[in-house]
């Protein structure tokens, strides 16, 4: 547990907390991005380059944008005026976050011996990940691909349906 780890952990936690506590939804989304980026840096610190870059590419580059789009398209751009920076329902948000964290923590604690005993860090480079995906995990990969394709087709159908009512 180095100094860098604590800095990154603090950054990630601060981002995540801000995402829960802030009032303005777009601010929340942006803080969530900070948390994503912090997580990516943590992966990088652990030596998992591929996962870190994919984390940035997918979460910072795509998911954050998706969240922002969803916020802007579903709510008016008006920001709450009075009442400080923090959301008034921070307690509820915090409890939901704590509950999710508890479930995740429980899952982690239950699944494997969570403190690694080995001193040697497992190298997870691109080649290994690729080989694992193409050999051992090929079935899950294909299932995920099928699921995504189905989702894509569903999205297209939803969009097409809207178009039929055009004037």
């Amino acid at each position: 547990m180095s100094f860098v780890f604590y800095v990154l952990a603090a950054m990630t936690l601060a981002g995540a907390l801000a995402a829960v506590l802030l009032k303005n939804l777009v601010h929340c989304a942006l803080s969530l991005t900070v948390a994503f980026a912090g997580l990516a840096l943590l992966f990088l610190e652990l030596g998992a380059q591929f996962v870190a870059f994919v984390q940035i590419l997918v979460y910072v580059g795509a998911v954050a944008i998706l969240v922002v789009f969803a916020i802007l398209l579903t709510r008016s751009a008006e920001t709450p005026k009075a009442g400080g920076v923090f959301s008034r329902t921070w307690l509820a948000g915090l409890s939901v976050a704590a509950a999710v964290f508890a479930v995740l923590g429980w899952a982690v604690l239950e699944s494997t011996p969570w403190l690694p005993q080995t001193t040697e860090a497992p190298a997870a480079d691109v080649e290994q990940i690729g080989e694992a995906l193409m050999s051992r995990y090929v079935l899950p990969l294909e299932i995920v691909a099928l699921l995504l394709t189905a989702a894509l087709i569903g999205a297209v159908i939803v969009a097409m349906h809207e178009k039929e009512g055009a004037q």
Binding site: Q49, V60, V68
Partner: peptide, 25 residues
Amino acid sequence: DLDASLLFFFAMGASTELSVFMAGW
């Protein structure tokens, strides 16, 4: 010289989108 430098480049490129959104919003 990263193992996944191409991916790194695209990851950085993807982050610019967020700054564009931040500026506009």
